[in-house]
Write a protein that binds this DNA or RNA. Structure first.
Length: 212
DNA sequence: TAAGGGATAGGCT
DNA sequence: GCCTATCCCTTAT
């Protein structure tokens, strides 16, 4: 095992999945494309905490071809399709512990022109949702069950920016799951414009919610 | 700008 | 045949 993989394993097993989800805020993802690298900072995440979590794909131990990645090693990419979009997740915890983190929002850095072309729009709607950001980056299902930091998709394990404030809320778009619908397992950089469903009035235009 | 509904694709029973 | 870890457009305030 390489040193990079050892660091990756530690990052995705050190603490609970909700703790790791908060630690991801401000970390950079980088995706290599034929048009050059696309990068962005993670601003919104959701934790899914395994067989006991009625909102999670692994609820009650469900294990199918589709969600097999949940049972893979920490730092594995879990891609799945929802409607006509693909959604990006990182696997946490040791093999056979089916927990993971959904990436719901990213603040673009490099390659904004490519993202605009991929999305057919500009501004916050480029990447302020889980389906939007994968479309902006041009990610596809082939990434499923491949490890981070080996192929085209990489994650910086040290945060680039620090949130002024980490806010939390219930999952988005997961109704009818009892207490798990309202569980505060969504984390986001308060006042950042690339957070999904944020109200315009609360946006920090000057610093995007990052610490100076 | 907030809320509601339709489009749309695939997994699962 | 039903149910989504979504998005976008329309409608009303």
């Amino acid at each position: 095992m390489t040193i990079i993989n050892a660091q990756l394993t530690k990052f995705f097993t050190d603490g609970t999945t909700p703790e790791i989800a908060q630690r991801l805020l401000g970390c950079r993802i980088q995706y290599e494309t034929p048009n050059g690298p696309l990068t962005g900072l993670i601003v919104e995440t959701e934790a899914y905490v395994g067989p006991s979590d009625a909102a999670a794909h692994a609820f009650a131990g469900r294990r199918t071809k589709r969600n097999e990645a949940l049972y893979d090693a920490p730092g594995t990419i879990y891609m799945f399709q929802s409607r006509q979009y693909v959604l990006l997740n990182f696997i946490t915890q040791p093999v056979d512990v089916p927990e993971g983190i959904l990436i719901r929002g990213v603040e673009p850095e490099q390659g904004i022109e490519t993202m605009q072309a991929n999305r057919g729009t500009s501004g916050a709607s480029l990447t302020n949702g889980p389906g939007k950001l994968t479309q902006a980056f041009g990610m596809f299902m082939a990434l499923n069950q491949t490890p981070l930091n080996v192929g085209a998709l990489s994650l910086d394990l040290l945060p680039v920016r620090h949130p002024n404030q980490v806010a939390s809320s219930a999952h988005i778009g997961v109704p009818n799951k009892g207490e798990w619908t309202s569980a505060p397992l969504r984390y986001f950089v308060a006042s950042n414009p690339y957070v999904s469903k944020i109200t315009k009035k609360t946006i920090d235009q000057a610093h995007h919610g990052w610490r100076a």
